[in-house]
Every structure is written in structure tokens, then in C-alpha cells.
């Protein structure tokens, strides 16, 4: 039930989580500073990078965003099989 991800998968997931957090933070900042060109530029650069990372991750390890393309060999719905967030064993500090 508890899931220890492989090292490459775990590192890719953590990298996605870190980048997503930066985007969340910039999103809130832009909500109250919509004219800040610098924040918008950083947001767009990172958002492009983020979506590329999500595509690569999902291609390798299965879906983590709903409504994504579900690529598997052989054809199988992998949304339910990729690890559920509360069952992942995150590495100790």
C-alpha cells in the first residue's frame, strides 16, 4: 500500500512539485500585481518548462493530471495505477 518510488521517478516528481509551487506563488502575486511585467515573464517561462516536464513525466510514469493523454503499452488506463499522493513515501529530511 505504501509506495516507494524509484529514485528517478521520485526526483522527477519532487522537481515538478517544486516548480509547481513557484507557479502557484507567482499566480497569487500576479492576481494582485497584474501589471508586473517581470513576474509575468518569469511566470510564462516557468509555465512552459512545467508543462514540458509534466508531459515527459506522464509519458514515463503515467498520468498525474486528469484529462491528459493516457499513453501506455499495452493499452491500459494508468490514472488509477500511478501512486496516490498520500501513499507515496517521501524521503526523510
Amino acid at each position: 500500500m505504501y509506495k516507494q518510488l524509484s529514485r528517478p521517478q521520485y526526483e522527477a516528481l519532487i522537481e515538478i512539485m517544486e516548480l509547481e509551487f513557484v507557479l502557484i506563488e507567482l499566480n497569487l502575486y500576479l492576481d494582485t500585481h497584474p501589471d508586473c511585467e517581470e513576474a509575468l515573464r518569469i511566470y510564462n517561462d516557468l509555465a512552459m518548462k512545467y508543462h514540458g516536464m509534466i508531459m515527459d513525466y506522464q509519458h514515463e510514469y503515467g498520468m498525474i493530471h486528469s484529462l491528459s493523454v493516457n499513453r501506455t503499452e499495452p493499452g491500459e488506463w494508468n490514472w488509477i495505477d500511478s501512486p496516490w499522493p498520500w501513499e507515496i513515501e517521501y524521503k526523510k529530511l
Binding site: 516528481l13 519532487i14 515538478i16 512539485m17 509547481e20 509551487f21 502557484i24 498520468m63 498525474i64 493530471h65 486528469s66 484529462l67 490514472w79 500511478s82 501512486p83 496516490w84 499522493p85 498520500w86 517521501y90 524521503k91 526523510k92 529530511l93
Partner: peptide, 15 residues
């Protein structure tokens, strides 16, 4: 809303 199958921040629990 759409679900993302990940946490916003890791949850590490020692025991």
C-alpha cells in the same frame, strides 16, 4: 476543478 495526483508539499512522517 481538475485533480492533480500530487501534493503541493511532501508529507514526511518519521513514526
Amino acid at each position: 476543478w481538475l485533480y492533480e495526483k500530487k501534493l503541493e508539499y511532501p508529507v514526511r512522517v518519521d513514526k
